[in-house]
Amino acid sequence: MDERYYSRLNQYRSLWVLVFFDLPTETRKDRKIAAKFRKQLLDDGFAMFQFSIYMRFCASRENAEVHIRRTKINLPPKGKVGIMSITDKQFGMMEVFYGTKPKEKEAPPQQLELF
């Protein structure tokens, strides 16, 4: 098959999982719980997009579900957490700005396939 077909297919098959959260930080215990949640996301391969938005590239829906399940297991007892999955194609259409200047688009991550 044509390489463009696989490239286009992968843009719709691969997903980005985004985790949005607003956690309480009034007490020392709250701050410790929030820091632990962030660390668990980083340990699971998420990267910080903004302070309370983390994202992770997943090569397939099945892989995304694994990371979504792990995030749900680690949910803190208080606060608001949202989990959203979008296709690589949708993620690539996002516009990011620093002030009024657009940020250069980054190259998509390399996919590793094991047979």
Rank of each mutant, 00 (worst) to 15 (best):
D2P: 12
E3P: 10
R4F: 14
R4A: 13
Y6L: 14
S7E: 15
S7T: 15
S7K: 09
S7Y: 13
R8W: 08
L9S: 11
R13T: 15
R13L: 13
S14F: 03
S14D: 07
W16S: 05
L18T: 00
L18I: 00
L18K: 00
V19N: 00
V19H: 01
V19P: 01
F20I: 01
F20P: 03
F20R: 00
F21D: 05
L23I: 00
L23D: 03
P24A: 10
K29C: 08
K29F: 11
K29E: 15
K29N: 12
K29W: 03
D30E: 10
D30R: 06
R31L: 12
R31M: 06
I33A: 09
A34K: 04
A35W: 03
K36I: 04
K36S: 11
K36E: 10
F37W: 03
K39F: 04
K39L: 08
Q40F: 08
L41W: 01
L41E: 00
L41Y: 00
L42A: 06
L42C: 05
D44F: 01
G45Y: 02
G45Q: 07
G45E: 04
F46N: 03
F46E: 06
A47W: 01
A47C: 07
A47I: 12
A47N: 06
A47F: 05
M48K: 03
M48P: 06
F49V: 12
F51I: 03
S52H: 02
I53H: 00
I53D: 05
Y54F: 00
Y54Q: 00
M55E: 14
M55D: 07
R56S: 05
F57E: 00
C58G: 03
C58F: 01
C58M: 02
A59F: 07
A59S: 13
S60C: 06
R61C: 09
N63A: 07
N63W: 01
A64M: 02
E65V: 11
E65I: 10
E65Y: 09
H67V: 01
I68F: 06
I68H: 06
R69L: 12
R69I: 09
R69K: 15
K72M: 15
I73F: 10
N74Y: 07
N74Q: 13
N74H: 09
P77W: 03
P77H: 05
K78L: 13
K78E: 15
K78N: 11
K78Q: 15
K78H: 12
G79D: 06
G79M: 04
K80Q: 10
K80G: 05
V81N: 07
G82L: 08
I83R: 01
M84R: 09
I86N: 02
I86S: 01
T87K: 03
T87V: 04
D88M: 12
D88Q: 12
K89D: 14
K89G: 11
Q90L: 10
Q90K: 09
Q90D: 13
M94A: 14
M94V: 15
E95T: 12
V96E: 02
F97N: 06
F97V: 05
Y98A: 14
Y98P: 03
T100Q: 12
T100R: 15
P102C: 05
K103P: 02
K103Q: 10
K105V: 07
K105C: 08
K105E: 14
K105D: 15
A107C: 09
P108Q: 03
P109S: 08
P109T: 02
Q110Y: 08
Q110R: 10
Q111L: 15
Q111F: 13
Q111M: 15
L112N: 10
L112Q: 13
E113Y: 12
E113Q: 15
E113F: 14
L114S: 08
F115M: 14
